[in-house]
Design a protein around this nucleic acid. Structure first.
Lengths: 230, 230
DNA sequence: GTCTATAACCGGATAGAC
DNA sequence: GTCTATCCGGTTATAGAC
């Protein structure tokens, strides 16, 4: 079952061409920014016809969707090995978030566009949209893995929602990073240090049996907000 | 000192033309949405040349900036009288937020675009950008007024940051509303009810002398995040 | 199923005359 | 302040080749 934006690159060659176009585009985005890179220029640089670019990517925005996938893969590649050495939840979260930011680093100036389109509820690039389902799931799964293989014990009800909540939190960090103009994004790293500490403490507090009623209420609210429609 | 996007409409006639274009645009946005309304169509409907529209609004997006101003004015007009009858902080926040949503109501389907552009750090429409300074200040001032004329007592350090924090909170509510597809946006109103209650309780907790150290830490974090640059 | 080449459409934005 | 003409780039359409 292919997503509508992934026009079934069935053949070997098709796969290659698709990758070629995407790589070319991402490189150009990094170097000159998104707006300054025209579809014509991407096609020319990749030495394909412009129609071909549109054959693989329904629109310029879909190149961004593909970028999400790419980033997630790269992040996993560095993150999973690093996680092997960390068993505390705090350490695991720190590693994950820091590596996420460093993976995104080369694209900082281009990242504004990401969230720009991502914030439109009708855009397929909205991380909550159906089109983003696969990446989002994969990303949430990572947080599930982080909890699962850590030493923490959390109550079942919280355990279920926690990966999603941590994913939301991580989106917040990225949003901050996008706006962060400090040198080497030190403020983002500082924010990570501070908030990871808070988050872990909060989880521990919420796991206390005494906090059960409050936790139930809070989780009901969360569940309600996640619902779609009516 | 005029903002760069407000090309000094000094003359009577200029003021009129500007208003005409803006009104026409907003009406068309409401009826057919932002993307489906072309600058050409706006100009035609308003019976001005397209170049003239660009004389008053540097880009199509700047019409949105003007929309912010307009909404804020309308909100104030209904909100201030209603606030006269409410002295409790909780009641005042409820009134303010509910009226904000109802003021925005006619523009719900067009609102996606707002946050779309608003999320781009380089966009002048970003509510944190210098161009948005006047509206943002005015909006934060409203929250200052809400606290000031209410019965609550909050410690000085918190008092200073509170208007900004409440403004942020209100932005979060709007973001939720934009994504809210429920009938008559009931979920947003429910969210307001629940969270206003939480917020007020939290303020009261944070005002407790025992909470002083924690409050100091939290406020330092907030202050740090607000800083610009380096 | 992939891919090319080319022309055309559409709408945001700009230039320069008046 | 206002207009017309033009540019530019995303996107589509066409028609055909491997």
């Amino acid at each position: 079952m292919d997503a509508p934006n992934q026009p079934s690159t069935k053949t070997q060659k098709g796969e290659q061409t698709r990758a070629l176009i995407l790589n070319t585009a991402l490189e150009m985005f990094r170097e000159r920014g998104y707006e300054n890179t025209t579809m014509r220029a991407i096609a020319e640089q990749a030495r394909v016809a412009i129609g071909n670019a549109y054959y693989y990517f329904a629109s310029k925005e879909y190149l961004i969707q593909a970028f999400y996938d790419r980033i997630h893969e790269e992040h996993l590649a560095v993150c999973l090995p690093a996680l092997e050495k960390e068993r505390s939840l705090k350490g695991r979260l720190l590693v994950t978030l820091r590596l996420k930011i460093s993976t995104l680093e080369p694209y900082h100036q281009f990242a504004g566009v990401l969230f720009k389109t991502a914030a439109d509820p009708r855009s397929p690039l909205n991380p909550f949209s159906p089109d983003s389902d696969p990446v989002r799931r994969a990303s949430i799964d990572l947080f599930d893995h982080i909890i699962e293989r850590s030493k923490v014990r959390v109550p079942k009800d919280l355990r279920v929602e926690l990966p999603y909540l941590l994913w939301l939190y991580h989106m917040g960090i990225i949003l901050f990073w996008i706006h962060d103009a400090s040198l080497e994004h030190r403020r983002t790293y500082r924010l990570i240090d501070i908030t990871v500490d808070l988050v872990v403490k909060l989880i521990s507090l919420a796991s206390n049996p005494l906090a059960r009623p409050l936790r139930k209420t809070a989780l009901r609210l969360v569940a309600e907000l996640r619902e779609e429609g009516s």
